[in-house]
Amino acid sequence: MALRREVFLGHVQERGRYDSRHEAERAARVVLALLGSHLVGNVRAQLAARLPEEFALILLNPLQSAEPLPPERFVRATAAWIEGATEQTAAWDVSAVLSTVADAVDEDLLAQILLQLPVGYDLLFGRPQPT
C-alpha cells in the first residue's frame, strides 16, 4: 500500500532535519528521479506502487543516466541537481529520502532494489548488508 504524501514527506523532513516541507520535497524529487534511472522493470514498478502518486511518477519518469552510478557519484549527482547543495548536504538528502523509501518497502523488495544497484547503496538506504 502506498504511503500518503504527507506521511512520506514528514518522514523525509524529520530524517533530513529540514526546516520546511518544501526542502524535504525538493530532496525527495531529486533523489527519486536519480534512483528511477537506476532501477528497471518490475522492481521499479513495485517501488512506485509504495510511494505517493506524485513521487511514483517521478520514479517512473526518471532523469536519464548513461550508467548506474556508484554511491559516491550518486551523491555528487544529487548535489549537482539541488541548488546550493554540497556533497555533505547531498549525502544527508540522499540518506533522508532513501531510508524513508527503505521503510516503505518490505525486506524482499529492498533486496531486489539493492541487487539492481552498484555495491554500497545499502549504506545510503540505512540498511548495511553483511559482506
Rank of each mutant, 00 (worst) to 15 (best):
R73E: 15
R5P: 05
R21V: 15
E87T: 13
Q112V: 13
L109M: 08
W92N: 15
A96T: 07
S65D: 09
G36S: 09
A91Q: 08
Q88S: 01
W81Q: 08
A77T: 03
D103P: 01
L115Y: 08
V31W: 01
D106E: 06
D108P: 04
L39V: 09
V31Y: 01
N42E: 15
A79G: 00
H22W: 03
E87P: 11
A91V: 07
E83T: 04
L60Q: 12
R26A: 09
A45L: 15
D106K: 02
R44L: 08
L123C: 13
R21G: 05
S99D: 07
L51N: 01
V101M: 09
L9K: 10
F8C: 12
P70K: 02
E6L: 09
S95M: 05
Q112C: 09
E25Q: 06
R15A: 07
H11M: 14
L3A: 11
E72R: 12
F55D: 08
F125L: 08
I58Y: 08
A80C: 04
F8P: 06
P130I: 14
L60N: 01
P128M: 04
L98D: 08
A96L: 01
I113D: 06
V40S: 14
A48Y: 00
P70G: 02
E23N: 06
N61Q: 14
I58S: 11
S37T: 08
E107I: 14
V40Q: 11
D122P: 09
V101C: 05
E83V: 06
L35G: 10
I82N: 00
T86A: 03
G120V: 10
E6D: 13
A90M: 03
L124I: 05
L115I: 12
P128Y: 07
R17F: 02
A27R: 08
M1C: 00
A80L: 08
A45N: 15
P62W: 02
Q13K: 12
V31T: 03
T100G: 09
V7D: 13
D122C: 10
G41A: 12
R21M: 06
R73N: 11
A91Y: 02
E67Y: 09
V40E: 14
D103S: 12
L35V: 15
W92A: 10
L39F: 06
L110I: 13
W92C: 11
L109R: 00
S37M: 09
M1N: 05
A33V: 11
L117E: 07
A85C: 05
E54S: 14
M1W: 01
A111L: 04
L35K: 06
L98C: 10
V12M: 07
E83R: 02
E67T: 14
L115G: 11
V12P: 03
V7R: 13
Y18I: 05
I82V: 12
R29N: 12
A45Y: 10
R44P: 12
W92R: 15
E54M: 05
